[in-house]
Nucleic acid binder design. Structure first.
Lengths: 221, 221
DNA sequence: TTTTTAATTTAGATTTGCCTAAATATATTT
DNA sequence: AAATATATTTAGGCAAATCTAAATTAAAAA
């Protein structure tokens, strides 16, 4: 597989994520996420088109080719394996792993990543609950739903938080909710849509709708 | 501490190693090691002088400042810790670790390196037998000598090989000599300066002077 | 001490990845 | 459908890190 610069990899990865959220990817949108100017996006799209990683016609938008998709998955694999390593082995907290993994993911040795995978015993999810592509680029589709949409009296596992702010972390910390926590929704209040939830063997307690919307759980796990 | 580009780090690191071998570092010499043209060295020296990492006067040569030295040690720390990790945890062979560590060493998070150090249980030597600087930049001075200079009938441990070629590796492999192998020189032949050596409980055998000059041992270990 | 040779530096390009400002194409109103 | 607004692209530049070719300085030889 061809070898891209860290910058090119960041474009590919970001396009992949934006496509995944089925937002149609726009020049301005991508520029906003990558913190660059729209003109830089256009420049890069021309280059990535040449390398056959994106389909691109001026003014007509762009999206990843099959090859671009495959490449994106390999970057995401590296990123999530490093996150797992940092969390599981180096004892980073789950909110610190992302930024360090952003750097590590650009180290390109395929052998390194496959051996890391093996060392970690082939983990299937990163510390945020996102699935890790295998060495063939296969990735599990997880049904992640916000806690606010969980049916009552079914247990699920917290796998993602749709907000990285210090304030949400403080609140979750206070309630002892984190990635991997097993939760059950006991009641939903019509008045303010707050939820009564139970975790572990504790007394049930109430959380706000806005918090529940940010906490994602893996359904069925 | 200031943050250098991967390229700047490579210059600093290489100057450090060349200085260590007490070769006086020259523009051409550095260019040869870094695989660049002399003109590029001059360019970079101007920049590193500005950043107060090297002493430099045109045509008068250059050497690291105290700050440059400190920075070099931090890069070497990263490099060797990654080498240890790759060898010890990911089961890379000791001749594969260098090139991968060359990439990993430029990931700059201080916290990452200190946590990695702890995870590895503060190793003092990398898989080549070179000492790993601690988080204060302190480094053990090891007395490494080539096997060719070992006194007779004293045991020592192979800690370094001054050549990375496939041919030397083949020969060492054949003789079952590697990093960490305990050796004893039994006899030195005047005719061709070949050595009779003994490893483990095996029958002594003979190696050439040119091989013995490339195999370094830690004296006293 | 000249002269010759070798090492080093300068001058001027090139590539990558970014920028600003201006032009152009598409979308939305009126 | 014309006018206005928004999105996108082009043109031209800049900094980092490299290069080649030409100039300059220092070292070695005659």
């Amino acid at each position: 597989m061809l070898n891209l610069s860290a910058s090119e990899e960041n474009y590919i990865k970001t396009i992949f994520h934006l496509q995944e959220e089925e937002k149609n990817v726009t020049t301005n949108g991508l520029a906003a996420v990558l913190n660059t100017r729209p003109a830089s996006i256009t420049d890069m799209m021309k280059k990535l088109k040449q390398k056959k990683l994106v389909h691109y016609q001026p003014y007509r938008g762009f999206r990843l080719t099959t090859g671009g998709n495959r490449y994106a998955l390999s970057i995401i694999r590296r990123h999530r394996l490093w996150e797992f390593f940092l969390f599981e082995k180096l004892k980073f907290s789950w909110d610190e792993v992302h930024s360090v993994a952003e750097e590590l993911e650009h180290v390109s040795s395929k052998k390194l990543i496959d051996k890391l995978d093996e060392f970690l015993d082939f983990p299937r999810f990163d510390p945020h609950g996102d699935p890790i592509p295998d060495n063939q680029g296969k990735i599990l589709k997880t049904r992640q739903i916000p806690l606010s949409e969980m049916p009552l009296n079914r247990t699920a596992v917290v796998c993602n938080v749709g907000d990285q702010s210090a304030s949400i972390l403080e609140l979750m910390d206070h309630n002892k909710i984190g990635i991997g926590t097993r939760v059950e929704v006991k009641k939903r209040f019509d008045f303010d849509h707050s939820l009564e939830i139970k975790i572990r063997q504790q007394v049930p307690f109430i959380i706000s709708e806005s918090l529940a919307k940010k906490i994602f759980v893996k359904h069925g796990a």
